[in-house]
Write a protein that binds this DNA or RNA. Sequence first.
DNA 1: GCCAACGTTGGC
DNA 2: GCCAACGTTGGC
Length: 149
Amino acid sequence: MSYWLAKSEPSAYSFADLLADGVTVWDGVRNFQARNFISSMIPGDQVVFYHSNADPSGVAGLAEVVSVPFADPSQFDPQSRYFDPRASLDRPRWTSVRLSPVRQLEFVPLDVLRRVPQLQGSQLLAKGNRLSVLPLTADEFAAIVAAAG
DNA sequence: GCCAACGTTGGC
DNA sequence: GCCAACGTTGGC
């Protein structure tokens, strides 16, 4: 089992939205590195749900991968803001998985995350990190859950 | 809203 | 293959 951190702007889709929906298609990722991470997800992988561009930003809850990776439907939809004219059904460019909530966490703001010793080397805190999906070690995952109490 | 950081694109 | 221009992300 692998551990991941997925970012979402809560004004667009929050952890509360995920709780309400029960399951969601994690679509719209348009970065190759992040896509490759999604492509390597398997059902049961644990996901830290992070609110970015928020006030404050931070960790809001835990989610779980509940599907194998599949072609992101939004790339084929001309009405979608994520439409990719270079993608075709037989040559998709982007990948999605389905996510379900596991449980809400006590919110852990970014300034608290910065002080967690186990996270000092994490991609999350790396300078200039802009990946919307990134891997966590089991240690980093446990430290985040512990920071939430 | 600003802007630093960084990924992607495309001309050459 | 280089790199300038451009677009996007995300903290503040």
